[in-house]
Write a protein that binds this DNA or RNA. Structure first.
Length: 213
DNA sequence: CTCCCGATAT
DNA sequence: ATATCAGGAG
């Protein structure tokens, strides 16, 4: 446990040295936009979401309008993010709930957010940490993979990984740590051919010997 | 555990 | 042409 905390701290320091200000790549200018962008980001790259939201947010600046829109109309506009029917339904239902139960505001806790349609634990954590400054570790596919390769977690589920990471990282660093792992996973410790040669963690990574590139 | 889907890397 | 990417709901 103690060694694991030290190891996590070492990972944190090294990644932070490379990226002093790790920030989320989704573009948004308020909690509502971040919520919408993150719902659209399910199984989709942030880059593509940004292409869609750039115009989508001009047309739908608040939950009020989405809540009254038809599924087909929304679906058409978010099509390129994939799973567009599901996401359109989620978005509309989510905005209806925002209007009905939260005066159009985005709730400030993971618990409340998770109750919203289309919002799972990963999305809720992203919103709460980035929009409201609540410490959170959101375990997406990148965090899961990187934590796994670093043996920081051998958990099977994202929920379990989240708990293991929270146990070895100081709470005030949760959000930054989480974002560092996302960026590291997205650009260096990628799924297919991890770029180990240019990895700042190469010498301390338990998975380094198996890789060549 | 299966379904939902377009975009991009190979 | 096909494998892989990237979360949530039922």
């Amino acid at each position: 446990m103690v060694e694991k905390k030290q190891f996590a701290g070492q990972v944190f320091e090294r990644l932070l040295a490379k990226t002093p200000e790790p920030k989320i790549e989704l573009q948004y200018s308020n909690p509502f936009q971040l919520l919408v962008a993150t719902i659209l980001a399910a199984q989709c790259t942030d880059l593509r979401v940004n292409m869609v939201t750039k115009t989508f947010f001009k047309e739908y600046p608040t939950p009020a309008k989405i809540a009254r829109e038809s599924q087909m109309v929304i679906a058409e506009k978010i099509k390129s993010t994939g799973f567009y029917r599901n996401k359109a339904n989620s978005l509309i239902a989510c905005c209806q709930r925002l209007m009905a139960d939260y005066q159009g505001e985005v709730p400030r806790t993971v618990g409340e957010l998770e109750k919203l349609p289309g919002v799972g634990r990963k999305t809720a954590s992203v919103v709460v940490s980035n929009a409201y400054g609540v410490p959170a570790i959101s375990v997406d596919t990148h965090v899961k993979r990187v934590a796994d390769r670093l043996n920081l977690s051998k958990a099977k589920t994202p929920e379990a990984t989240e708990e293991e990471l929270k146990a070895v990282v100081a709470e005030e660093n949760w959000t930054v740590f989480s974002q560092l792992l996302v960026l590291h996973g997205r650009y260096v410790c990628v799924a297919r051919n991890p770029k180990c040669k240019q990895c700042t963690l190469l010498d301390i990574c338990p998975s380094n010997e198996k890789v060549t590139s």
